[in-house]
């Protein structure tokens, strides 16, 4: 563990879309090597906050510190370069491409020099096989098209992509929303494995049982504010629900 325990610190971040105040002075921290959950009702601002972290939105005010540096992400590429990977709700896989092509999309390995830079297909397939088998439980063949994979396998591929390339923080937006019971269990296993491999994970979920099962820390958002954080070990489902609905004042 390096200098501080905190990997990402969000301080007083605000963002408005016209008259709508999507985020109001949100402050929270994410620790290294932990699964942090972010919960809240629809429209509480979870997705907006996450979009700020992954470079899609830029906050109007406030400061984010990532891995010891104050950061300003202008594009998703900036966030990715810093080491923040996002697994999007809609998975963001190209169905007509193969597993290895998706894993390396826009990060293709090449051989030769410009203008004769060709894809290192063999190298990418080999590394993709390694990436997938290191993480996934239900291993898909790296040469199969994503279209042919099950929902759980697709999610596994998305998570593999996010977990690789030396990312420090993996953000997951509802990673099991579209999955069945068994596949959910497998993806949860995968999320724990990510943490055990040293990645910090930010998990957005509507499933309280899942949050309590998986996370080390929970932050609760309500109406654009971060209304509180609890260590998962010392809280209960009732308390979290109370924070979300406002029954328990922050």
């Amino acid at each position: 563990m390096t200098a501080t325990e905190d990997l990402l610190t969000v301080e007083e971040v605000s963002l408005s879309f016209g008259a709508v105040k999507a985020l109001r002075e949100v402050s929270l921290t994410l620790r290294r090597g932990e699964i942090t959950a972010l919960v809240g009702d629809n429209g509480a601002g979870k997705s907006t906050l996450v979009r700020c972290m992954s470079g899609i939105h830029r906050p109007d005010a406030g400061e984010m510190t990532f891995d010891g540096d104050v950061v300003t992400f202008r594009t998703p590429d900036d966030a990715r370069d810093a080491g923040i990977e996002t697994v999007h709700q809609n998975l963001a896989l190209v169905e007509d491409l193969t597993v290895w092509q998706n894993l390396f999309l826009n990060r293709e390995k090449t051989i030769g020099a410009f203008p004769f830079r060709l894809l290192d297909r063999r190298g990418m397939k080999r590394d993709a096989g390694r990436m997938v088998s290191a993480l996934a439980v239900n291993v898909p063949a790296v040469t199969s098209r994503v279209r042919r994979l099950s929902g759980g396998q697709r999610q596994a591929v998305s998570i593999c992509r996010a977990a690789s390339f030396s990312s420090k923080l993996v953000i997951m937006d509802e990673p099991t929303a579209a999955l069945g019971v068994q596949e959910t269990a497998k993806v949860e296993e995968l999320i724990r494995k990510l943490r055990d491999d040293g990645h910090a994970v930010l998990l957005i979920s509507h499933n309280f049982e899942q949050v309590l099962r998986l996370s080390d820390h929970v932050w609760v958002m309500r109406a654009g504010r971060c209304v509180g954080g609890r260590r998962t070990a010392t809280t209960t489902g009732e308390e979290v629900v109370g924070l979300i609905t406002g029954a328990i004042p922050a």
């Binding site: 594009t75 998703p76 590429d77 990715r80 999007h88 809609n90 998975l91 963001a92 896989l93 190209v94 169905e95 007509d96 491409l97 999309l105 826009n106 990060r107």
Partner: peptide, 10 residues
Amino acid sequence: GSIEAAAATG
């Protein structure tokens, strides 16, 4: 194949 997915990966 998917313009959103392609854009999401940069």
